Computed example of a mutant assay.
Amino acid sequence: MLKGIPEVLSPQLLKILDEMGHGDEILLADANYPVESAGMKNGSYVVRADGIGMVEILEAILKLFPLDTFSDYNIALMTPEKGEPEIWKEYEKIFISSSEEVKFKKFSRFEFYDLAAKSYAIVATGERALYANIIMKKGVIK
Results as ranks from 00 to 15, higher is better:
residue 80 P to T: 12
residue 40 M to Y: 14
residue 41 K to G: 11
residue 85 P to N: 05
residue 103 K to E: 01
residue 39 G to S: 07
residue 89 K to T: 13
residue 62 L to F: 04
residue 108 S to G: 08
residue 98 S to Y: 01
residue 6 P to R: 06
residue 46 V to P: 00
residue 85 P to F: 01
residue 51 G to Q: 05
residue 8 V to R: 07
residue 116 A to R: 00
residue 117 A to Q: 08
residue 58 L to H: 04
residue 6 P to D: 09
residue 133 N to H: 05
residue 36 E to M: 10
residue 120 Y to C: 08
residue 36 E to L: 15
residue 24 D to N: 08
residue 116 A to T: 01
residue 45 Y to K: 12
residue 107 F to Y: 08
residue 140 V to K: 12
residue 92 E to D: 13
residue 62 L to C: 03
residue 41 K to D: 09
residue 39 G to K: 01
residue 73 Y to S: 10
residue 87 I to E: 01
residue 81 E to C: 10
residue 60 A to V: 08
residue 68 D to G: 02
residue 75 I to G: 02
residue 121 A to E: 03
residue 20 M to T: 05
residue 73 Y to D: 07
residue 69 T to H: 10
residue 106 K to E: 10
residue 34 P to H: 06
residue 53 G to V: 01
residue 42 N to L: 09
residue 65 F to T: 03
residue 83 G to S: 04
residue 93 K to E: 11
residue 100 E to Q: 11
residue 121 A to H: 01
residue 28 L to V: 05
residue 34 P to S: 07
residue 31 A to R: 08
residue 56 E to Y: 07
residue 1 M to D: 13
residue 92 E to P: 08
residue 106 K to N: 13
residue 119 S to Q: 07
residue 1 M to N: 13
residue 131 Y to M: 07
residue 23 G to N: 03
residue 17 L to V: 02
residue 84 E to H: 11
residue 10 S to C: 06
residue 22 H to N: 13
residue 107 F to A: 04
residue 132 A to G: 05
residue 115 L to I: 11
residue 111 E to D: 09
residue 66 P to R: 03
residue 83 G to W: 03
residue 82 K to N: 15
residue 40 M to G: 13
residue 59 E to A: 02
residue 134 I to T: 02
residue 65 F to C: 04
residue 14 L to M: 14
residue 131 Y to T: 02
residue 117 A to L: 08
residue 117 A to D: 06
residue 107 F to Q: 02
residue 138 K to T: 03
residue 73 Y to M: 15
residue 7 E to G: 15
residue 124 A to E: 07
residue 78 M to I: 13
residue 124 A to H: 03
residue 30 D to N: 06
residue 105 K to H: 06
residue 123 V to I: 08
residue 112 F to N: 00
residue 45 Y to F: 15
residue 63 K to M: 15
residue 50 D to R: 13
residue 120 Y to H: 10
residue 82 K to H: 14
residue 12 Q to H: 07
residue 108 S to A: 14
residue 118 K to D: 12
residue 80 P to F: 05
residue 73 Y to V: 12
residue 103 K to W: 01
residue 100 E to V: 11
residue 25 E to R: 08
residue 51 G to S: 04
